[in-house]
Write a protein that binds this DNA or RNA. Structure first.
Length: 872
RNA sequence: GGGGAAUUAGCUCACUUGGCUAGAGCGCUUCGCUGGCAGUGAAGAGGUAAUCGGUUCGAUUCCGAUAUUCUCCA
């Protein structure tokens, strides 16, 4: 059978469906609402809350293929991707899960059945590893797994490995357990005859690779390092889709499979180079590009645009790495990555419709980034050339290389390349020192220390009641201390809460907790793994009490006003600009709202006006909120409710309806549109290629804004003595002003001209030089003008002029060019000497110089002194 | 979140102990050569040196704040 990648994926899902698993969609690759993670890096991420026991799974057996992104970690360094043949930034992970249902026996036996009987992998090429135990954690060999495997495979093919390879942990703390890995040996018969495959397991051999990891989650690691048994045991497995394809398609590299070859062929045809699957720089470059375009495209599809912070910065770095490799090793100095999107969509748009639907946006965003980075490269190169020309030694200073990198974004390997072309080398040690210092600085700024949760009393899930109530009597179920930048904070969880946690663009509620004898403030509310966490700066004296929890109602009202207005804005945008408008980001707080959306041109002033009109019309119509709390997602979609790319929805969703505006939304809203009061767009601008941002205000904030504008206008009118036509009055004023300025200019020139004529007559000869020295009643600019003019028109001339402005003195010296050249006279040096007489300092060039000082009486003394100097 | 940098003519950018009438290329305007265009020659216009404050006799230059943009790290 021909195992195309499509067929491999379908077969996997089909197999587990037969084993009673519910097949779910891949979660968006970009993680929201989890501060510990930027991107999905394993299949289990979207099920984390079930492992932690924070919520109850609807299905105990689940299977999927999950888009993952890894750019750092113990086995994945971005700089290594493309160099070898089996690591990727973005990859798919095929997985099956059991949440407290089946455990090791089924997990192992099904994996074996699928690999050997369905995919028909050669049993002789398979090796198994099991956990060998660990003294520090007081854990013994995972004999249970070993016994199960012994029933399936020859014992000699089972390896016992230590915790580095066979004990899986989610993070510093949390659910964990031993795992069992399945490795395959894909080498040729000859190679296998020479070296036993068993000795190559876990040795980073490109053809002896791990393809599947079966994790048996049975412990919870606490902050003090102690392991405790979990009440429910879980299965979490992950199989590398690209590696499986390599095995089934009999290839030596993931890149040779039908997953990557179409992309590689396209790079080949764009660059005019050939691909030889070797480790030459050229082939590495082609692999890097084929890999990275996938990561970037899927991230953009999931709503993450390249930017200079957080997840967006990671995407930008990946894209820039692709461009850099193309630029350095394939001589591609025009944008090219965007041209690959079309190939990717053709290959993967079926399984992942999000990239097909957003193809034009993805292409445009990548193109824009490419152009901007190519500009950065150009500037860096010219900066480097400049430096190299000035410093003709054999070393490129590490500090300079770091400055290029850090401040101007010029990649260090390009600096090295440019240097070696000139026979220079870069002081890498110093560069790395600088980089390390920068890292230390950043890390020190973001230290977060988290204690274990302290359980106050057991309760079922925390419930959110804030849609209906802003005040409630609550009990604290658990709390913990966190230290952020040396500042202590407490995180509290309640049995139920009126506080809305930050999400869907809406900020978290603030408010307070109150009991008889104390009151403490909730400064923020956030969600962590679906649990609502309240942030306070202190802990109540007695956490067992019942507290009155009250949301800051004024702030909440303004937030709701802005949130509902956002929905109306979204709908109006689609009506005015077209249905290509998709939400790309949203922020709603009590001050204003911000809405990012896909659109390719500036929104014109006329369109802004139309949008405001539509929204304000709907506000005036007083449309009542219709809220459906628990609509099945399918039904909600059929109603035509707007959903977002890159957002993960549960089976039951909340639908918010204001007339014809219909959106899936978890946020809080006004009861009726009239509560919004007034809607006003304050800014419209671009934030990225193809993405515009609108900022707007509503309610009291909008009223205040309008009132202030009117007040300002009244004030302006008042200053102009209330003219009928304000604009005309101001235009006249400006015109008059410029006329006056011209007149003054002309008068000054006249005055200077007069002075100039007189001056030449006053010239006296000293030592063969024409000397003019005089104090004039003119402004400094005119004096300079005169001095320049006379010096330009006359050879053999020395002029020194003085004037007084605001009780301060200024001296100006000008010397004809021939004197400077022939006699080596220097106005700058002379004036430094003379400036002492007026109690100041000065300087300038050889032909003209100025000085200032506080002592106007000294002007004439200075002029006399100049005569003496010339005479000597 | 923590650093580094940039902001000068319509555009792209120069300008070091703080004092040069702040310059260049492209573009623009006018005129000339050419039958017209392309081309070419000459002349010219165009600047609050991002904004605000400080130091100084004097700030585009040094210092601080603000705004915008770029960039690295987390």
């Amino acid at each position: 059978m021909e195992w195309t990648s499509k067929k491999i994926r379908e077969t996997f899902l089909e197999f587990y469906k037969r084993k009673g698993h519910h097949i779910v969609d891949s979660a968006p690759m970009v993680v929201k609402n989890d501060p510990t993670l930027m991107f999905i890096n394993a299949g289990m991420n979207q099920f984390k809350e079930y492992f932690l026991g924070d919520s109850e799974p609807k299905n105990v057996r689940v299977s999927d293929t999950q888009k993952c992104l890894r750019v750092s970690g113990k086995h994945n360094d971005l700089e290594e991707v493309g160099v070898d043949t089996y690591h990727h930034t973005m990859f798919e992970m095929l997985g099956n899960w059991s949440f407290g249902d089946y455990f090791k026996k089924e997990a192992i036996e099904w994996a074996w059945e699928l690999l050997t009987e369905v995919y028909k992998l050669d049993k002789d090429r398979i090796y198994i590893s099991v956990f060998a135990g660990d003294k520090n954690d007081n854990l013994e060999l995972d004999g249970e797994s070993k016994e199960i495997w012994k029933g399936l495979i020859d014992e000699t093919r089972i390896l016992e490995c230590d915790r580095k390879d066979n004990f899986w942990e989610m993070g510093e703390t949390g659910p964990c357990g031993p795992c069992s890995e399945i490795h395959v040996d894909l080498r040729s018969e000859e190679e296998r005859a020479q070296i036993d495959g068993k000795s190559l397991v876990n040795e980073d051999h490109p053809q002896v690779v791990e393809i599947w990891n079966l994790v048996f989650i049975q412990y919870n690691r606490k902050a003090n390092g102690e392991l405790v048994d979990l009440p429910n045991k879980h299965i979490d497995t992950g199989m590398g889709f690209e590696r499986l394809a390599m095995a089934l398609q009999n290839k030596k590299s993931n890149y040779d499979t039908d997953i990557f070859m179409p992309l590689i062929n396209k790079v080949v045809s764009i660059s005019g180079k050939t691909y030889g699957a070797t480790d030459s720089k050229q082939d590495v470059a082609i692999r890097v590009i084929a890999d990275h375009v996938r990561a970037i495209s899927f991230s953009i599809a999931d709503g993450q645009l390249p930017s200079n912070i957080g997840a967006g910065y990671v995407i930008r770095r990946i894209l820039r790495r692709a461009i850099r490799y193309g630029y350095s090793f394939l001589a591609l100095n025009e944008p090219f990555v965007n041209k690959l999107v079309e190939v990717l969509v053709a290959e993967m748009g079926g399984q992942f419709p999000e990239i097909k639907l957003q193809q034009s946006l993805i292409t445009k965003v990548i193109l824009e980034e490419e152009e901007s980075f190519l500009r950065t490269l150009e500037k860096g190169i010219s900066r480097f050339e400049n430096y190299a020309a000035k410093n003709q030694d054999k070393n490129i200073d590490g500090k300079f290389a770091f400055e290029l990198y850090d401040t101007f974004g010029f990649p260090i390997d390009l600096t090295e390349l440019l240097a070696s072309e000139k026979g220079l080398h870069v002081d890498m040690q110093e560069f790395l020192n600088c980089l390390q210092q920068q890292k230390d600085r950043s890390r020190a700024a973001t230290i977060i220390k988290t204690d274990d949760w302290v359980t106050v009393f057991d309760d079922e899930r925390e419930e959110f009641i804030g849609y209906d109530q802003l005040v409630a009597n609550i009990k604290i179920t658990r709390y913990r201390k966190v230290i952020i930048k040396g500042k202590e904070q407490y995180q509290l969880v309640f049995n139920f809460t009126p506080f809305y946690a930050e999400g869907g663009g809406q900020v978290g509620d603030t408010g307070h907790l109150e009991s008889n004898d104390e009151k403490l403030y909730v400064v923020d509310t956030k969600k962590e793994n679906n649990v609502i966490v309240h942030f306070t700066e202190e802990l109540p004296k007695d956490v067992n009490k019942t507290f009155k929890a009250a949301v800051n109602a004024d702030a909440r009202e303004l937030v709701e006003s802005n949130h509902s207005a956002t929905h109306l804005l979204h709908e109006a945008l689609r009506e005015v600009l077209g249905s290509h408008v998709e939400q790309k980001g949203s922020l709603v707080n009590d001050k204003h709202l911000r809405f990012d959306f896909s659109h390719f041109q500036k929104v014109t002033a006329e369109e802004v006006k139309q949008i405001e009109e539509i929204v304000n019309n709907r506000i005036r119509k007083n449309i009542a909120l219709e809220e459906i709390r628990n609509a099945p997602i399918k039904q909600a979609r059929e109603m035509g409710a707007m959903a977002l790319f890159g957002e993960k929805y549960g089976d039951l969703v909340r639908v918010i309806k204001f007339g014809s505006s219909l959106e899936l939304c978890g946020g809080t809203h006004v009861n009726s549109t009239a509560n919004i009061g007034l809607f006003k767009i304050s800014h419209e601008n671009a934030i990225a290629a193809g993405i515009r941002r609108i900022e707007a205000i509503t309610n009291k904030t909008a009223e205040t804004f309008v009132a202030n504008q009117l007040e300002e206008l009244h004030a302006v009118k008042g200053l102009l003595k209330n003219p009928k036509n304000v604009q005309g009055a101001i235009k006249d004023l400006l015109k008059k002003n410029s006329q006056l300025a011209k007149q003054i200019d002309a008068l000054n020139k006249d005055k200077a001209k007069g002075a100039k004529g007189d001056l030449m007559n006053e010239a006296i000869e000293i030592n063969g030089i024409q000397f003019i020295g005089k104090e004039l009643d003119l402004d400094s600019a005119s004096i300079k003008d005169i001095a320049f003019d006379l010096k330009g028109k006359n050879d053999n001339l020395f002029i020194i002029l003085g004037n007084k402005v605001d009780g301060k003195a200024t001296l100006t010296i000008a010397i004809s060019d021939n004197l400077v050249k022939d006699k080596g006279m220097h106005a700058g040096n002379l004036i430094r000497e003379l400036a002492k007489e007026i109690g100041g300092g000065g300087g300038g060039q050889s032909a003209i110089a100025t000085a200032g000082g506080k002592n106007p009486e000294g002007i004439n003394v200075a002029i006399e002194k100049a005569k003496v100097l010339l005479d000597s």
